[in-house]
């Protein structure tokens, strides 16, 4: 298959240009909210919590905070990117262009994931101003960062096609992803929970993402790293299949 590289580049640059236009809200908002988390959880509450597995509480929550932002921003960026042309009607151009789902997804999801990773790096830098951070396995940290950004950008892309309006677009991140991230060990180790709740928590897929990502920093994990990586890859694969099906059938895109 001959790919339309110019189309991938055009979509990617178009989406990144939108980030530059809204630079303040794209960067300042997550940086400010992350700083607030550090002040509230890291300083106010963290000073009363002992070290977790040899890591200070402030440092412990950094991977979870990055993951929380990564999930919500990836979904938000990708869903907005594809929902906007549907809303304005400019989607006709995308549908009539000589592009397959590969080019469209690479352009939109690539841009959304890039934005999330840039924000992840900014939050990591912001966090380092508050606490000491060490990265034990930089390669695995980057791999988790890329895989999770891409997976959740794909999920956001699906959401942007499924949603009929802006309200639906907000519901999934606000009512599903954020609670799952909060309850998935962003701010604690699941070993701190009673045994019954530990078992219940294992049904939360975000646990595996946060655990694997935190392991790449401090070599502490709630579940095995192989399981974390497998769960991430399975989620990525499911999202890819759904996107392929959407373009094959034209679900909510072509009548």
């Amino acid at each position: 298959m001959r790919l339309n590289y110019h189309a991938i580049s055009a979509i990617y640059r178009f989406e990144m240009a939108r980030m530059r236009r809204t630079l303040f809200q794209s960067i300042a908002t997550p940086v400010i909210s992350t700083s607030l988390y550090f002040i509230v959880f890291g300083s106010a509450i963290g000073s009363r919590i002992a070290e977790i597995d040899g890591v200070s509480y402030g440092s412990f929550i950094v991977p979870g905070l990055i993951m929380l932002m990564l999930l919500t921003e990836s979904i938000s960026n990708a869903s907005f990117g594809i929902h906007m042309p549907r809303f304005t009607g400019t989607i006709f151009e995308l549908l009539s262009a000589p592009v397959s789902f590969v080019e469209v997804v690479t352009g939109y999801v690539g841009a959304a994931a890039t934005k999330s990773m840039i924000l992840g790096a900014i939050i990591l830098a912001t966090a380092s101003l508050f606490v000491d951070i060490s990265i034990a396995h930089p390669f695995w940290m980057l791999l988790f960062l890329v895989l999770i950004s891409v997976s959740f950008s794909l999920f956001g892309f699906i959401l942007g096609i499924w949603a009929d309006g802006w309200e639906k677009l907000q519901i999934v991140p606000a009512l599903i992803i954020t609670p799952l991230a909060f309850l998935g060990g962003s701010f604690y180790s699941i070993s701190m929970l009673p045994p019954t709740w530990q078992t219940v928590t294992l049904f939360n897929p975000v646990v595996y993402l946060i655990s694997g990502f935190r392991w790449s920093f401090y070599e502490n994990a709630d579940v095995s790293v192989a399981l974390s990586l497998s769960m991430t890859c399975i989620f990525l694969f499911i999202c890819l299949v759904v996107v392929w099906w959407i373009f094959r059938t034209g679900y909510k895109l072509r009548t």
Partner: peptide
């Protein structure tokens, strides 16, 4: 294709939106 509706990227400039279309259709 010039559609019936005036569907445009309202926040884009004329130059960037026309350049985008060229790229989307696979042209340098």
């Amino acid at each position: 294709l010039v559609p019936q509706e005036l569907s445009t990227d309202m926040f884009e400039t004329v130059w960037s939106t026309v350049s985008f279309s060229r790229g989307l259709f696979g042209y340098r």
